[in-house]
Design a protein around this nucleic acid. Sequence first.
RNA 1: CGGGGCGUGGCGCAGCUUGGUAGCGCGUCUGAUUUGGGAUCAGAAGGCCGCAGGUUCAAAUCCUGUCGCCCCGACCA
Length: 569
Amino acid sequence: MKSSEIFNPTLREVPSEAEIVSHQLLLRAGFIRKNSGGVYSYLPLAFRVLKKIMNIVREEMDRAGGQEVLMPIIQPAELWQESGRWEVYGDEMFRLKDRHKRSFALGPTHEEIITTLVKQDVHSYRDLPLLLYQIQNKYRDEIRPRFGLMRGREFIMKDLYSFDIDEDGLDLSYKKMYEAYSRIFERMNLKYRVVEADSGAIGGNESHEFMVMASSGEAEIVYCDKCHYAANVEKAQCPAPEPDGAKRAEARPLEKIHTPGVRTVEDVMHSLAVPAESIVKTLIYWADGEYVGAVIRGDRELNEVKLKNLLGCNELLIADENQVSQVLGVSVGSLGPVGAEFKVYADQEIELMDNFICGANEDGYHLMNVNLGRDFVPETIADLRNAIKGDPCPVCSAELDTTRGIEVGHIFKLGTKYSEAMKATFLDKNGQERPFIMGCYGIGISRTMAAAVEQNHDENGIIWPLPIAPYQLIIVPINTKKTEQMDLAWSIYEQLSGQGLEVIIDDRDERAGVKFKDADLTGIPLRITIGPKALQENKVEVKKRWENETVLIAVEDIVEEINSILSQY
RNA sequence: CGGGGCGUGGCGCAGCUUGGUAGCGCGUCUGAUUUGGGAUCAGAAGGCCGCAGGUUCAAAUCCUGUCGCCCCGACCA
């Protein structure tokens, strides 16, 4: 393909609307253009990338026994009412009416449709397992679309749904998908991790997220290099700390001290010259109609998901300062577990603390030398804190590390949630009617493209991983007016594209600098430069986008050299 | 939905406070000179200043409404 004919309008300046790197670069490099908030057009280069991602996904879905289908985006309300999600989904679902005033939704996902499809035509265990998938646009009327393709309102997604006879079957389907997903992200040359995830509202008992590593990722992940444990911070367990054998300090008498104006943990640290580890903080939550206090060490963060799971409540909201002072008569800076009027839930670490400091439940006062057991007894002691770097791994006790990632895949065991709600059943061996055991497995296709950029770029632009690059190679003749250069460029172009390689030839009458800048911005992995310097020795230059050095290659060896590079990546 | 900000040629912005008929850089087009990391010179095209009302002799500028976009928060593949 000639550069002069490719539709990829590049921009020199960063459009002001773009906040994160992938959004900026995809706009600047002429891959995407916005049509409205969270809705984008994919230009030719982007579409090529998307097709590559889709093809890898397709191949692995097929290999795992999946069959591709195409289903409606416009879905009738009745199906959603049947599953109960018409109400549940709320404002996040795009809704519309037809001319007869019948209600429809633009599909945010396809559980209802697929369950209906299978229910209509699958009636026997002999037809199971069944793995069906689709790749298409999905719609969510996000409260706030942002980050370009990361959180759009229209996005491309692959979803596979599995239907099994029993839990064992589901386990097998789940395992197949887990492996297929791993292959997919490996094939795309993306650095990723699989993490245990909270299965959240969708239900089910097992769930993993596939995270593409990127410092800009929205999810924090803890992981262990020793044993491959990895989990979303929300989910990561903190093992109960072992008493490390060091002698526990003698409990000293409780002491109340005047601490005017001291509110935060930091204030306490400074005014009393103590480390955060010897302070205990108390957070008040409104949990289904009751105020409760969560107590954790001063340097730790509370994990609300853990607290919520512990309390088994539906609604958990942190109380604001006004509520606290009104209801408890103390300002938030002076809260503490001693003599508290609220139920106290303490993090495990509190048990190991001796003579700590906390608020006195009286404005302007703190308590020193507080000890659990002697001075207060919590309702429950549990794991309530966020895991952080350096914490022991819950599996092997080695030190955990943390990183950030972008969630590009998520696999769930659904069980019978939808099949029961929608009465989707089959007859088992014994003629018994049973609901399908389902699983669902998603990959954000358009998001993966953005994640790939987020992970692979430098100050000059995108660096596409070879397997998903829009083109693999670009040939840059320095001066298009020199027939010697152009003839050679075209000859190499013919040879390489003749063997199936995707090649761009920059035939534009631009200065070399412009061509280099555009090539870098666009992120084509390999570049062959044809210029007068090397040509004198009958050589051309080869440059890998992800490396700085340029290598001189003899003209007659160039095809072989390119093939050798391609075989390595 | 709450809080903040912004809509002025394709992109990035100035002008608005103090109303007087729109400007800069980049890009685009023409020509010349150039040609190894976003060239130079000369010329040119392109904007009813988001939209709708209002105030005024006069509105990009002041007022009201409306639409859209961005950021922070609750939500989330």
